[in-house]
Amino acid sequence: MAKGEIVLGCLAPHPPHVVYAENPEQNEAFAEGGWETLRWGYNRLARKLKSIDYDAMVIFTPHWQTYIGTHFLGLPKFKSKSVDPVFPNLFRFNYDISVDVELAEKMCEVAGESGIVTKMMRNPDFRIDYGTITSCHMLNPEWDKPLVTISSNRNAHYYSPEVMNEQASALGIACSKAIEESGKKVVLISSHSLSHRHFVTESPLPEDMSREHIYNHSQYVWDMKLVDLMRDGKMKEVIDIMPEFTEQTIAETEAGGLTWMMAAMGYPEYPAEIYGYQSVIGTGNLIAAWDPIEATREIVL
């Protein structure tokens, strides 16, 4: 069996607003549009994914929060409705997803062997979080690839962002090893915003773009610092400053997703593909991808 490999890594933020604005048939709410910079960036990245041969998407989600280890979805099908507890007015999505249980179990096993506390989630009533659904829908609206969803163990809450960085790195390395042993071609998805301070009020029409802007300038400056490092292919440096970035911008990187993905990909030293940056209810959202194959790597923006 050939060794498995990571064929693309995606930073894919999950504000439910982007699904809402797309008006897919699965979502009950209706929008007049909005957040085009992000949506069009997502559309372009989704087209790139169509040109790549892969077996499964592996997503690390901040909205399945676990404190007792790292958990993996462990049943082949989940079908239900996901309602965002924070923005239920925007996101009530009827989903029908397939899970690559074999790959999930392999990751769980290898992570466990490396000392990480793990658990398979096999309750059929379990509801899939809106982070997983938003990122995966925007990257693959046809939903024709199986997923592996990994919970985010909240080390930043219990210890510090430094501990989060260490443990998410260990998980990333374990997942990379599991992918190699599986023989599968996998797309990794780190589902989160960068800076993550929200406005606590919402305009009467949520998609009114005249009201949308970053929460404050310092958040923007930090976000751009990371974008510049990504463009320069300095992902080890990004991860090294992750604790300070996370604390300064109360960033959603606190869940460990970007650290996990970069560790799994060996801290790329090549430029990231930048697909778009835009604020959503004050938070900073970047869509980016890391393509290990130089011949297909693009300068997008």
């Binding site: 676990t66 924070v86 989630m121 096999r122 309750n123 009533d125 606590v200």
Partner: peptide, 29 residues
């Protein structure tokens, strides 16, 4: 029940579902 947009108050007359806890899913629905 964390909220971001102000303070949310349940207003459905008969909310009904089967809930599973994020950490303790193995204890049942």
């Amino acid at each position: 029940w964390p909220s971001i947009i102000g303070h949310q108050i349940q207003g459905h007359p008969e909310p009904e579902w089967v809930h599973v806890d994020d950490d303790f899913h193995y204890l049942g629905s």
